[in-house]
């Protein structure tokens, strides 16, 4: 599904190397988790994959189902099936959440040469999915993320993911700022989307999210590289001993 080879990335305006040769394969139907200390390059990886400006790829490749992602505009990557759930979803005053969702869904459909969703059909689908995520009618009407609590913003990200039905989902610290109940709700939303044809990359600091979204593979990232890969037990090891042991072991 997602294939990253020797990815090297620096900041565009600064001589600062952030990713130093990342190799990663996420298969369809699998959930991979990336854990790592602050500043290890986890969020940068998610931004570079989704096409945010300000970064320069100096070496390596990233492909989605064999298609080179790095040369595409962010909107084309989205239409190709990539989705990033933001760590800090952006507030957009003056654009209704529902309008935004419908515009996004139909823009992707149009880009793929599919028929656009009618207003009535869209409304039906979005209401059903919003209900599962306990997103009320008011949240759908309000401007995008405006006045949403931390938990509401994250649920809104998952709603977008559910509506857009991407092939490859990247969740960037989706657990940050969530209490236990909100985290459960978000995790349920994510789990509902798990399917054979869909890959997940879950970026997180803490193991607790992985109690709810059970990963198949866990990677530890440090200093711009993936330094260790294992099963779910690796997350527990981090939880119990911190990163220090693993970092020492690799060094």
């Amino acid at each position: 599904m997602l294939s990253i080879k020797n990815l090297n990335v620096k900041l565009e305006d600064e001589d600062k190397q952030i990713l130093k040769g990342v190799d990663l394969e996420v298969e369809a139907g699998k959930v991979h988790a990336i854990m790592g200390p602050n500043g290890s390059g986890k969020s940068t990886l998610s931004y570079v994959l989704s096409g945010k400006g300000g970064y320069e790829v100096t070496e390596g490749t990233a492909e989605l189902e064999g298609v080179d992602l790095l040369d595409m505009e962010p909107e084309d990557r989205a239409a190709a099936g990539l989705f990033l759930a933001f760590q800090y979803p952006v507030e957009i005053p003056g654009v209704g959440n529902m309008t935004f969702l419908r515009t996004a869904v139909n823009a992707q459909r149009k880009a793929r040469g599919e028929e656009e969703m009618s207003a009535a059909e869209f409304l039906k689908v979005v209401r059903a999915k919003a209900k599962e995520l306990k997103i009320d009618a008011d949240m759908l009407k309000r401007p995008v993320n405006m006045g949403f609590s931390g938990g509401e913003k994250k649920r809104n990200e998952i709603l977008q993911m559910a509506m857009l039905e991407p092939k490859m989902c990247i969740l960037d610290e989706t657990d940050s700022g969530l209490d236990v109940d909100a985290m459960k709700l978000v995790a349920e939303g994510v789990n509902a989307l798990r399917s054979e044809g869909r890959g997940f990359l879950v970026i997180t600091h803490y193991q607790r999210l992985l109690d709810h979204i059970k990963p198949d593979v866990v990677h530890i990232m440090a200093n711009g590289r993936i330094i260790k890969t294992g099963g779910p037990e690796l997350a527990l090891e981090v939880e119990n001993n911190g990163y220090a042991d693993i970092l020492a072991e690799v060094a």
Partner: peptide, 8 residues
Amino acid sequence: FYLRSRGV
């Protein structure tokens, strides 16, 4: 970027 990342 947020809007574009959603396909707009």
